[in-house]
């Protein structure tokens, strides 16, 4: 029982974190076809900024997370403006820039803080108990924040003017420009929101698991899995694929030995892609 509840929480937490990061990636990918290979590094740096603020500057954890999110959102604007916008449509150069930024961020964190694994302190002590079952408040909080943010983001994308403009750009970029939408500004906004969400996920994951300068590489791949399996253009599908991948990642270690458990999700992903060559909810004809 204890194990079951713990696993359910692992599924929920991993899924919501994967979805947070993947959504940010999907925004730029769907709107402008940009493969942002720096997205994983943004997630990682977000976690480290939170860590540094709490551990070295003694900032309140909540404030630290907020600051980390805002800083990386700002970084997202810079990224869009100077690294992606000049090369719109030039796939090769966008990939090169992404790798470059990735290397710079990883190296910077490495040089400043070392490769030692670190963890953000937990924000809440104690356990919530239901009879024999207990769950740490920390985990509950992480999940609640993640879930709340996902609700907020879906509301933003579906209901607000800027969110609808983002959708318009991904459905027909020229039609969007002709409607008077400032494609560059909305892209910058999307990149800011996406980077902020990634940074926040980095902080939350940093307190749930561990921080490492290379944790972004793996997260980037997971984001890609979510986006591709959902099908290009589908935002809602990412929630489904996020739950699937989070489920695989959380359940596999319960059944299989460590390294085998790591392999299983990717084997499943490859098989799914072969069966559904356009993902689950792909819009592309």
């Amino acid at each position: 029982m204890e194990q079951v509840v713990a696993t359910i929480f692992n599924v929920l937490i991993l899924s919501s974190m994967y979805i947070l990061v993947a959504l940010g990636f999907a925004f730029l990918f769907n709107m402008l076809g940009i493969l942002n290979l720096a997205h994983g590094a943004v997630y990682m740096v977000g976690g480290y900024i939170g860590f540094a603020l709490i551990n070295s500057a003694g900032v309140n954890p909540w404030v630290a997370i907020l600051i980390a999110t805002l800083i990386m959102a700002g970084f997202g604007v810079v990224l869009e403006r100077f690294c992606f916008r000049p090369f719109t449509g030039d796939f090769n150069r966008i990939v090169m820039v992404g790798v470059g930024i990735n290397v710079v961020l990883q190296t910077a964190v490495n040089a400043l803080l070392g490769t030692r694994m670190q963890a953000l302190p937990s924000f809440f002590d104690g356990y919530l108990r239901f009879g024999v079952v207990s769950v740490s408040y920390q985990r509950i909080t992480i999940f609640l924040i993640g879930a709340a943010l996902l609700v907020l983001v879906s509301w933003f994308v579906r209901r607000t003017k800027h969110g609808q403009q983002m959708q318009a750009i991904s459905q027909d970029i020229e039609g969007a420009a002709l409607s008077g939408i400032n494609v560059h500004r909305v892209s910058a906004l999307a990149c800011a929101i996406g980077s902020g969400m990634a940074a926040l996920a980095g902080c939350l994951m940093g307190s749930y698991l561990m921080l490492s300068p290379y944790m972004g590489d793996l997260m980037l791949i997971k984001a890609l899995v979510l986006v591709i399996l959902a099908g290009i253009g589908s935002i809602g599908g990412i929630f489904v694929t996020g739950l699937i991948l989070g489920g695989l990642d959380a359940v596999a270690p319960v059944i299989f030995d460590g390294a085998v458990a790591d392999a299983i999700p990717y084997i499943v992903v490859v098989v799914v892609l072969l069966l559904r060559p356009r993902g689950f909810f792909g819009r592309e004809a």
Binding site: Q164, Q165, A168, D172, G175, A176, L178, S179, G180
Partner: peptide, 25 residues
């Protein structure tokens, strides 16, 4: 303002949203 060749609508958004997006400015 141009009503372009091929219409260039936003196919997955409602008619109303399409119209409202035309008033983005």
């Amino acid at each position: 303002i141009l009503v372009p060749e091929g219409r260039r609508l936003f196919p997955y958004l409602s008619v109303l949203t399409n119209l409202r997006l035309g008033a983005s400015l």
